[in-house]
Structure formats: C-alpha cells, structure tokens
Amino acid sequence: MSARRVLTVDDSRTMRNMVAFTLRNAGYAVEEAQDGAEAIKALQIGNYDLVITDLNMPTMDGLALVRAMRATPRNRATPILILTTEADAEKKAAGRAAGATGWLVKPFNPQRLIEITAKVCA
C-alpha cells in the first residue's frame, strides 16, 4: 500500500517541519503549504488522505480553509485536523462548525500526533 498523503498547512516553518518530521517517521508522505490559499492550490491538484492545518495564518486562515474544503465535492470528506495553540472551547466549536474532523493543541508530543493521525486517517 502506498503511503498516506498528508498536507500540513502552517505559516510557521518550524511547525510544518515538526509535523512533517514526525509523520514521515511514522510512514506518511507529507507535503507542506504555508497558508490556506496555498493549501487550496495543492488540494486542487493532489489527493490527500489528511489535512493538518493551523488556524492563525495570513492570506487565508484555517477556518476559511476548512469551509472551502467542505464546500468542494472533492474534499468534502477529507479529514481535517486543526492544530493550534488556542485550546479554548470557542475555537474548537468554531472549527467543528466549519467542518473540521478533529483538533490537536500545540504543543503536542510527537506520539500524540501520530495517534491522532491514525484516528482520523487510516
């Protein structure tokens, strides 16, 4: 079976690298985008098994990305994890309402990221 494809979307290079490093070690194929708009471009071309996105980004933020994905037939069912430092319920609810699958609060430990990824992406 070919590796699952994950798209990590974050304006912080450090975070993207962290996610990519962790998941690559766990056998996923990881690609990176630095904001929602870039992610949309990638999603138009590629098929991803999971999108992991930050909320707070320039140009197009995480919620807008989730909404845009859910409104596109192609990405309607793609699992989306929101990765953010904002742990408050308000943000989680907004993420859910927009159509996010799950969330992970930064700072995460790598094991937890792998677990959660497995939970939403076979």
Binding site: D11, S12, T14, M15, M18, D54, P58
Partner: peptide
Amino acid sequence: DDTLHAIFRAVHSIKGGAGAFG
C-alpha cells in the same frame, strides 16, 4: 489594518514552536 494581527501571529508562531521544544 493587518499590523496588529501580524504582530499577534509572530508572537503566536514563536509560542507554538517554543511549546514543541519544551
């Protein structure tokens, strides 16, 4: 208009990375 947001994002990004490294 975006200045405050941009500063927030900068601080926010640092926090995110810092947390990851403990």
